[in-house]
Design a protein around this nucleic acid. Structure first.
Lengths: 135, 135
DNA sequence: TTAAAATCGGATTACAATAGTCGGATTTAA
DNA sequence: TTAAATCCGACTATTGTAATCCGATTTTAA
């Protein structure tokens, strides 16, 4: 199925929440309760976003997260890559040279599919957390 | 993960093959062998495409499939819907009224996500089998 | 100094969807 | 009548997602 995973969904919801409440540090617990996201799972997701620099963490009591970049500079594509390592439609496009599936390099749909993917990624790359937070 | 399923991949490969060989009837066996797709699985996929009218079948020996529509009129979106019933990113957008997930109707990302999805579907809707077969 | 509340992180489990297989029925051309 | 094909339902295997558990560490504040 062509769909976004729960992790991506939670990641977008969380980043939006943090962006909207940028006047304070927000904890995973707060996001979890306000957004209705399983706490443990959300924590993992936030830790991943932190490792990729999309958010910054503060340890200890009164701790939590704030944005690590300007909301206008974080795209949906950034979030997908941060949480899943890659953003590609077919296995063909995962490796750097684009040739890892068994049909390559004689795959008859490789080129048109690569164009398709490029267009879709452009869409993901043109949507930012800033837009999502204000719309 | 944001990726196309094997079924979609096989469906595109098969439709492309049938389009390219439109001068004859092609069997599932031929596509399976030429494209390196598991026969049983491919058969199921072709039957689904047939039910949705994207291809037409002929029974019996010397039977097989031909396109059911002009290749230029069959889009990737059509294929996704034929094989998976829907084409939506998040659960929110599956039902007709767009309100089926537990966060709706107060979901804070519903509107921007719907726009995003609409743009991506536009991309899928602008790529046809004719293009894929000639590129 | 101690307790509470938070992030961190590995391991594990539960579940669902995808991918693939099997067996048999039906159709049709030679 | 046989062979080669579509058709169809049920089943299994595998994988990936989603969720959970347990404990360690950090930091603030009483």
């Amino acid at each position: 199925m062509i769909k976004l995973s729960k992790k991506i969904e939670y990641g977008i919801l969380a980043l939006q929440y943090i962006a909207v409440h940028s006047d304070k540090i927000v904890s995973a617990k707060e996001i979890s309760e306000q957004m209705g996201i399983p706490y443990e799972f959300l924590s993992k997701t936030l830790q991943q976003l932190m490792k990729k620099g999309l958010i910054v963490s503060q340890h200890g009591i009164k701790g939590g997260y704030v944005l690590g970049k300007n909301a206008a500079d974080v795209t949906v594509k950034d979030i997908i890559i941060a949480l899943e390592g890659k953003a590609s439609f077919l296995d063909c496009f995962v490796s750097s040279d684009g040739l890892i599936c068994e049909r390559s390099p004689n795959c008859t749909i490789k080129d048109p599919m690569e164009k398709l993917q490029s267009k879709v990624m452009q869409v993901f790359n043109n949507t930012t957390i800033a837009e999502i937070a204000t719309t």
